[in-house]
Structure formats: structure tokens, C-alpha cells
């Protein structure tokens, strides 16, 4: 198992159903700044006309996760399927992982006195087959799945689409695949000039290599 998620971000309407479902499912600490999952908003005007793009996001569960590397107590670790998790009992709140994460995907849970983050809902994916955020989404932005399984909904989707990553330059091999719109005009509107566009064929060897290398650390 190598869990990942594709995001058809142009479906997003910023309704924040995912944020609420995540909090209810996982008992995340209340507070507007305590989010395992969020919707990035880029808005402004071009020649006086307003525009906005939405990038729903969460932990990328990177194959080369810097948060895991920096953790002095092994609290941050890879769980089965490559899911990056925090062992609250081992966390000493040094916050090194929060500094290391390029996506600002971690925060302090004051009730647990530990760093908290997205777990890809690993307690429910066996039974429900998907995460709370995907299940609840009104416009079905997300597709959770297993990169190892050629027949998974996720891989089938990635094989037919082009995609990109957020902050690819940090070389962490993130696993949130942002599906590029097929329509060229809309594709151009939502990515920057230097965003690298990928296909499944070009990315697969790189991700396979990293999986082989790092999966020894994955706890069963």
C-alpha cells in the first residue's frame, strides 16, 4: 500500500465541508487555527476584474518527509501505507517538524500536548475505503487511493490526466496530486509559469524508487 490523493481542485467551491468532516471524524481540537485540512485561496484583480483560485490542501504525506527526518524522538513516523503520523506520547513539542514542513500542515494540539496533523483517516479507510474529507465533499474534489494498485480509482485517474504538485522544488516527493484542467485556458489560469506539469509515466519511476528506499521505515 502506498496511499495518496488526487485533487480535482477546479471542482472546489470553498464550502469547507471537508474541514468540518475532518474535525468531526478525527476529534481535532476546536479552533480556527487548528486545521488538519484547509482550502488555500488565491484571489485578486487583473485589470480591475476580480479572479480567484482555490487549492484545497492538507498533509502531502511526502515520500521523503522532512518532518520525519527532523524528529528527535521518532514521534513523527511513517505508518503503514506511507502515511505520515505523529505518536503523541513521544512528541516533546520541539516543533522542529512544524518548521520543516513546507506545507504548514502541522499544528499544536493543546489537549494532547503534541503536534497534530492529517492521518489520511487511517482508522476508517479499511472499512469505508476513503477518507472523511473525500466522502463528504459536495463536488467530489478528492480521490484517495493506493499508488501501488494499478487498478485503483486513483491510478486509473492519474493515468488519464496531467497533474502538478505544490512546492515541488522542496523535493519532498509529495503525494497530493493536483489534477490539471484539460481545458488549456483554465489550466493556464490556475498554475504559475514555472509549475512543472507531470504525467503518470514520467513520475512513476521517481516515486517507485523513493517508495522502495523509504518503505523500510514504514511501521506495520
Amino acid at each position: 500500500m502506498n496511499y495518496a490523493m488526487a485533487l480535482d481542485y477546479q471542482n472546489c467551491i470553498n464550502c469547507k465541508a471537508c474541514e468540518v468532516a475532518c474535525k468531526e471524524e478525527n476529534g481535532v481540537q476546536l479552533g480556527a487555527d487548528k486545521q488538519r485540512i484547509w482550502i488555500g485561496v488565491v484571489e485578486g484583480t487583473i485589470f480591475g476584474k476580480p479572479f480567484a483560485n482555490l487549492y484545497p490542501s492538507q498533509c502531502n504525506h511526502c515520500l521523503d518527509a522532512p518532518c520525519v527526518s527532523v524528529c528527535p524522538t521518532n514521534a513523527s513516523h511513517f505508518a503503514d501505507g506511507g502515511i505520515v503520523k505523529v505518536d503523541a506520547h513521544k512528541c516533546i513539542l520541539c516543533k522542529g517538524c512544524m518548521e520543516a514542513c513546507p506545507y504548514d500542515a502541522r499544528f499544536v494540539d493543546d489537549t494532547m500536548v503534541a503536534v497534530d496533523k492529517c492521518t489520511f483517516c487511517d482508522h476508517r479507510i479499511g472499512e469505508e475505503g476513503t477518507t472523511a474529507c473525500q466522502a463528504t465533499c459536495p463536488t467530489k474534489v478528492r480521490m484517495f487511493g493506493d499508488l501501488d494498485d494499478e487498478n485503483s480509482d486513483l491510478v486509473k485517474l492519474l493515468k488519464t490526466k496531467r497533474f502538478f504538485f505544490q512546492k515541488e522544488y522542496t523535493n519532498t516527493l509529495p503525494k497530493l496530486f493536483y489534477i490539471l484542467p484539460d481545458d488549456e485556458a483554465y489550466a493556464k489560469q490556475s498554475v504559475s509559469h514555472n509549475t512543472i506539469i507531470h504525467t503518470w509515466a514520467d513520475i512513476k519511476p521517481l516515486y517507485d524508487e523513493a517508495r522502495t528506499r523509504r518503505s523500510k521505515e514504514w511501521r506495520k
Binding site: 464550502c15 469547507k16 465541508a17 474541514e19 468540518v20 468532516a21 468531526e24 471524524e25 469505508e128 472523511a132 466522502a135 463528504t136 465533499c137 459536495p138 463536488t139 467530489k140
Partner: peptide
């Protein structure tokens, strides 16, 4: 927890922020 019930065609297998809350 409240999760969507996919059997109802009108609600298209989803619960919005309010529904989940």
C-alpha cells in the same frame, strides 16, 4: 459522526459543512 448516504439520488452522496456539523 454524520456521513453521506449514497442511496438518495438528490443529495449525491455528500454532506456539506453544515450537514457534517
Amino acid at each position: 459522526k454524520l456521513d453521506p448516504n449514497p442511496y438518495f439520488p438528490k443529495s449525491r452522496n455528500m454532506l456539506c459543512a453544515r450537514g457534517a456539523a
